[in-house]
Amino acid sequence: MANIFEVKDLKFKYKTNQENVLKGINFQIKEGEIFGFLGPSGAGKSTTQKIIIKILENYQGNIFYKGKDLKDYKQDFFEDIGVSFEMPIHFSKMTAMENIRFFQNLYKKKADVERLMKRVGLWEDKDKMVAEYSKGMKIRLNIVRALLNSPTMLFLDEPTNGLDPANAKILKDLIREFKVSGGTVFITSHIMADIDQLCDRVAFIVNGEINVVDTPRNLKIKYGERRIKIEYKENNKIVEKLFSMEDLGKNKEFLNTIKEKDIETIHSGETTLEDIFIKVTGVTLDEKQ
């Protein structure tokens, strides 16, 4: 697949910073994939998003969007993309629909807003002032805002942050549907489960540096401990045994156990992406930097 984004040796610092906040990062986003940035707060995720959507301009390094230097794009770049920021942003004294209509009028392409609003369960409340919306509703409205121009690429900064599980699921389903319909997604998060469930590939970012970029599956194979845990009953007690997955079929003890014992449960020892993150980067995801 072709790269939709190519980022080379990207460095950036804010005016008030002494040191670079981004210290020469490299990554590519492939067309049609969901690409994730996983890292703790302060790692540089939002900064990266703001740079690749042309909000922050004084960066060093090279960024190419669809093969052309990002700096050579004018305002038409924004016809192509949809953005949601870390915080839901709306005009609070206007209704949800007034917000959506106002922004939609600024684009050439227009998505079916009624369908989107129904999809996120806000159609009934479309004429309420945003000030009366709950946090979850504002976040859902935010994703409608990001989608209202039928973008080819979505940028989502911590999209599930502050959402309850039911709303988070609606949102993740929408993101998957967007991908199925041909879209590309850049998503940042410090929540391991989001990235694990959604992303085709993930970059681990800590302190302005990317440690590794790979698919969650490859990372698990590479860094995960592949073990099988068996629990069985013996003399009215539960006994637990661990086996390595290497050459499992030739492991006599394992084979005897499943043949002879009264098995209660079998689990493959899933190493979570978070465990792997800690292993690779040496920091935890909720660590403040």
Binding site: Q75, F78, I81, S92
Partner: peptide, 13 residues
């Protein structure tokens, strides 16, 4: 309301 951020990512000049 931080709404300028939303304006900046529209095609408006």
């Amino acid at each position: 309301e931080s709404t300028m951020s939303s304006m900046l990512v529209t095609p408006s000049k």
